[in-house]
Design a protein around this nucleic acid. Structure first.
Lengths: 189, 189
DNA sequence: CGATGGGTTAACCGATCGGTCAACTAACGG
DNA sequence: CCGTTAGTTGACCGATCGGTTAACCCATCG
């Protein structure tokens, strides 16, 4: 029961931070939005930073699960899944609630490299990178890690441009570029 | 004289906001860092938002001037300049003061699409896009706008990954990918 | 019935937020 | 010399910041 309440708190706090930003969201607002009093919040989390870290952990889990599952549903082959990543991104971009990548925003607000919030955001990107790398390897890329890095650049760029003017179309821009990069990285077919 | 003082204020405020973030930087801190009292600041700018907008205007001007000039210095041909963009980015990433793109951070903290800070950040990206598009056209790309969009994705992605774990090497990752995309976009050589 | 203990709450803490105001200073015209 | 005025200042405004505290509610147990 206790765990459930705490999870619910983190889940709702995630929405609020995602919509509003981290510094711009006060603990009073979190209390109001979640219906949990500040004192109870501070029973579960020692500081606001601890709450944010818990929120980011949940976000990492949710996002990777969703993205990888969606890629898996959309395509059978490893190469197809790499391309399907951008279709999944487009679905994300089309959501009304889309406000960019939570980890990019977190690292933008907490910039010191040794800040736990920053390092945890970097870890999220590393985990994505690992999965994409193994798909590249499976697809038969000559240099799977290099290809994965290139594809990740396209993904992050698309996330940014979807926010800053290009909208959901950024996903297809990225997909087109990804196809070119993948073709070039595979041993001559 | 008045204009000079104001410019100096904006210049120093830029450093502080860039280092510290927007919400995290109070007007008292700006006053302390610039040596200008709050009352004088508010003589020049009606609100904090107005100051931020002035800061972003200066940043846009400085950054585009620097980047385009650097690209021009590093290469003679249009195609070469497109590739040189990533070498220039690497120089930027290597600076100790590098903290990512100010406009990405601004849009992360001010997310509403109709927020002036957000729209001005989007405008900056649009201006970059325009310049890159004309270089793509000059280089003889079949679809210059499409190629420019792809290259911009790589640039934004590199900016993000340079912050979140990959460091300056992100620039060369992007350059390698850019070469592939440019080759594919030019009429068969 | 009363004692106990975990969980919740409104009220409060000093600090800081964005923004304002009355008083002061210094340069210039008569 | 005084009066005016533009520009600057530290002190101050109510609101909110992250975080704490004392009181209270209510189920359990004797």
């Amino acid at each position: 029961m206790q765990q459930t309440k705490r999870d619910e708190l983190v889940r709702k706090a995630l929405d609020t931070f995602y919509r509003n930003g981290f510094h711009a969201t006060g603990m009073d607002m979190i209390a109001a939005e979640t219906g949990v009093s500040k004192t109870s919040i501070y029973k579960h989390f020692r500081t606001k930073e601890d709450l944010i870290l818990a929120v980011l952990r949940l976000r990492d889990e949710n996002f990777r699960n969703w993205l990888f599952r969606r890629m898996d549903d959309l395509a059978d082959t490893a190469g197809g899944q790499l391309l399907a990543m951008f279709d999944a991104l487009e679905e994300w971009f089309r959501q009304d609630s889309y406000r960019g990548c939570m980890f990019i925003k977190a690292s933008a607000e907490y910039q010191e490299l040794d800040d736990p919030i920053h390092t945890q955001s970097a870890e999220h990107k590393r985990l994505l990178q690992d999965h994409v790398t193994s798909l590249c390897r499976e697809a038969g890329a000559a240099a799977p890690q290099d290809l994965a890095r290139q594809l990740l650049l396209l993904k992050e760029g698309a996330i940014i441009m979807a926010v800053l003017g290009r909208g959901p179309a950024a996903a297809q821009d990225a997909k087109t570029a990804a196809r070119t990069l993948i073709d070039a990285a595979l041993p001559k077919a």
